[in-house]
């Protein structure tokens, strides 16, 4: 295959090869054979991963398997490159520990990680998430009932949703003390506005014909609300819940930077950075990532079950 054909048929691989050759050459010239070999290994893994994925993507086969396998190969490639780079170039573990060291640390400090998880995710994030979302739902129904409120509150809510709300964390820590209550309060404020705006928008997502049909059934306000408008609002509500789920975790962790008892993920991260125990920091990040993905995934599954009728859920999956 000529270079030109490679560029047009597989631009990504061509780019990787070009970059790899350049960097290996630079390593050979400026820092010796050892460094150049590490760079070579790095690019070999990267290009190998990409080729494997290209092959997987081009193969006729079950879409579901491919949607699972290709990201997995990509992730493993990244991890392998990380490990090779850190060990090969001799990066200090104080700056970036290799994935294997993080895995070892993770398995050794399970009790600490669990304690922090309970403090931050269960007590702080989850309770705040539930309170905030329920409050926003109720407010949204009230706001929706009165058009004047809707026209007044919605622009304000949109404005507040764009603000750096995380800034109120120090104030709420001052009001509610150092324990999880203040973190839950931060989460409540953070999730409230995105949830409110989405729900109000969703409650308006019924067509005149649907509302007329309810009227011909002689359905009152509450019946219409529960049988038509709330179900119709579900895609919007779940959109809000998804946004809120990531905000909740961020709020709970960042609020701990402003004061916390001697446990919690935010506390552990900020103190471990000071102690240069970066492997523990990364272990906490792994916990946060797993918790965040699980949280998001659970909401997505629930959404699939509740809004099975929506076009965005029907298009794929079978």
């Amino acid at each position: 295959m000529t270079a030109r054909a490679l560029v047009s048929r597989a631009p990504l691989v061509a780019f990787q090869i070009a970059l790899g050759v350049a960097l290996v050459a630079k390593g050979l010239v400026s820092s010796g054979v050892g460094t150049a070999l590490v760079t070579l290994a790095l690019f070999a893994v990267w290009i190998g991963g990409t080729l494997l994925n290209s092959w997987l993507a081009a193969r006729p086969g079950v879409l579901r398997f491919k949607a699972f396998a290709i990201p997995l190969v990509f992730g493993l490639t990244l991890l392998a490159m990380w490990e090779i780079a850190v060990r090969g170039y001799g990066v200090s573990t104080v700056i970036l520990p290799p994935p294997s060291a993080i895995a070892v640390r993770f398995s050794h400090s399970l009790p600490i990680l669990w304690e922090d998880f309970v403090q931050t995710v269960i007590k702080g994030a989850l309770s705040g998430f539930v309170i905030g979302c329920v409050a926003a739902l109720v407010t949204a129904v009230v706001v929706d009932r009165f058009d004047f409120l809707r026209r007044g509150l919605l622009p304000v809510g949109n404005f507040v949703a764009a603000l750096p709300i995380i800034g109120i964390a120090p104030i709420l820590v001052m009001w509610f003390g150092f324990d999880w209550q203040s973190k839950a309060a931060v989460v409540v404020v953070m999730v409230f506005f995105p949830m409110l705006v989405n729900t109000v928008e969703g409650l308006h997502d019924t067509s005149a014909m649907q509302r007329d049909l309810m009227r011909t059934y002689a359905a009152g306000y509450w019946t219409t609300l529960f049988k038509l408008r709330l179900p119709a609002a579900m895609p919007f509500i779940f959109n809000g819940l998804k946004i809120a789920s990531t905000l909740a975790l961020i709020g709970a962790i960042v609020a701990e930077f402003f004061g916390s008892p001697v446990r919690g993920m935010g506390f552990r991260i900020s103190t471990s950075v000071g102690l240069l125990a970066l492997d523990l920091v990364w272990a906490e990040i792994v916990v946060a990532a797993i918790a965040g993905s699980a949280f998001y995934g659970a909401i997505a599954l629930l959404e699939k079950a509740v809004t099975f009728w929506h076009p965005s859920q029907r298009g794929h999956g079978h």
Partner: peptide, 14 residues
């Protein structure tokens, strides 16, 4: 889904 803000201190220090 990774709360990047949480590891902001580490990025700064590193």
């Amino acid at each position: 889904t990774i709360p990047i803000l949480a590891i902001a201190p580490m990025i700064i220090v590193v």
